[in-house]
Amino acid sequence: MEKIKRHSLSVRFVHWSVAISTFLCIFSGFGQMPVYKRYKIDQLPGLAWTSDFSVTLLIHYIAAIVLIFAVAYHIVYHLIRKEFSILPRRGDFKESYQIIKAMLTGGEEPESDKYLAEQRLAYAYIAVMLILIIITGIIKVLKNLPAVSLEMNTLTAVSAVHNAATMLLILGIVGHLAAFLFKANRPLLPSMFTGMVDKEYARHRHSIWYRRLQQKNDKS
């Protein structure tokens, strides 16, 4: 089956470093709540370290550094290249509804660009949560320094946003993964590993994107 390129190495690098660092942040963050000792997770083989706050805090910091690095890379890279195809557009809510309805009923989907309407919305949702988490996280890191002390109300508010945005992010990630319950979405899966997607799939489902690629190819 013929393939075409969907995701560059940069995109895959960002996706996976964000995914892995976010997972580590969430896992170590729950360790800070603290839950692993309470629910005896630390008694499972190989997981004794999970209830050691100094270990989970260090993981949290290191994963956060990777996350911030990847997010900065992502923003600057696409700004320079003027690639904004993943940003939400007017009418995306309605279009998402149509796509999901079509997937459930087997009806006809509206034509899609490089990203489906719900992918653009999901991107915006996860991006907003990550930005909130990163900003509040940086404030929390700074207040840990001996020279910095926050007013108690500020500290409470910052912690609340950090925690709430994390919970919403987890919901977002669950939604993102749940997309693959739909068979129609599965051909996209390999593209995040290899960068390639079936040509036929792209032509059929992402027809706007496909046509644009064709035009570009014709020109060159």
Partner: peptide, 20 residues
């Protein structure tokens, strides 16, 4: 953890530079 501060502050700059 506080010893990692510099890395944390450098991370966005490094990410942006590499992206550029």
């Amino acid at each position: 953890a506080n010893g990692l501060l510099t890395s944390m502050l450098v991370a966005p700059v490094a990410g942006a530079a590499l992206a550029g």
